[in-house]
Write a protein that binds this DNA or RNA. Sequence first.
DNA 1: GCTACAATCTCCAGTCACTGGAGAAGCAAG
DNA 2: CTTGCTTCTCCAGTGACTGGAGATTGTAGC
Lengths: 138, 138
Amino acid sequence: MLAIGRLSKDSGVKIPTIRYYESIGLLPPPVRSEGNRRMYPPEAVRRLRFIRHARELGFEIDAIRRLADLAQDPAQPCCEADLLARRRLIEIEEKISRLAAQRDELVRMIGDCTHGRIEECRVIDTLDDHAKCLHARH
Amino acid sequence: MLAIGRLSKDSGVKIPTIRYYESIGLLPPPVRSEGNRRMYPPEAVRRLRFIRHARELGFEIDAIRRLADLAQDPAQPCCEADLLARRRLIEIEEKISRLAAQRDELVRMIGDCTHGRIEECRVIDTLDDHAKCLHARH
DNA sequence: GCTACAATCTCCAGTCACTGGAGAAGCAAG
DNA sequence: CTTGCTTCTCCAGTGACTGGAGATTGTAGC
Ligand SMILES: [Zn+2]
Ligand SMILES: [Zn+2]
Ligand SMILES: [Zn+2]
Ligand SMILES: [Zn+2]
């Protein structure tokens, strides 16, 4: 059995975050010691690492809840887990293309600016009029 | 003078957002009509479009506040505006590389999975152990 | 003038995923 | 017993909105 500080160190998840995950039902409430301290079984480290890893890959809490539940159930088919991963992948690709478009605009704005006064600034000028952008939408 | 609904349509910024921008001091409080309605000068459309455009390029409100103020002051040197743009560009590049790393992991997880049961699922398996990832960090 | 209906007003709460502070209580070592 | 560390609960704040409730104002048609 581990105290919360130990669990935090072993899993790499901050103490307030662990309590937060408990409060939203992502991490099951552990037993308490006589003095009301949370006492975790060793498996909690694994679950929390799983959660952390999924968060690092950008999964939302709801998706992680499903993924973590599925991980506990080895006989189930994995199509739902794979679907969640594919959804996340699509999301990532959309984000990347949006950011790449923003990057293109900024590179151009900065590159075209002669760095004189505001009145000739390409950055301000472009922000002031989207028609001066390469991409129709951002 | 435009009412808020008109301003919203002309600028593409939703009414509650316009009021929100006023509340945080990004948009100056307009004069009011006898009946306490906000009445905007035509220039408000331009300012709001500027703000919206900068938001679409991912600038934070604080940066936009500076940029919008600088835009009003044509004689100033534009180095600060350019610096804000360069900062945003760096931020974008960092985001893209983080997302690209996530994408690589997900593509591999999904591609390697034989889509059988959870116990053999590469998605769950990889989430469970970051050592199975390509990238050391995400 | 009256009646709908649309537009706007203020205030407040919710979103997401944490993060941190205040103040109190428990716990281990010297 | 005291000192200092850990943990407890509760609450508020983050960023940038978003939307609902309930009240008021403006406008068009009759
Ligand atoms: Zn410039
Ligand atoms: Zn643009
Ligand atoms: Zn699978
Ligand atoms: Zn990993």
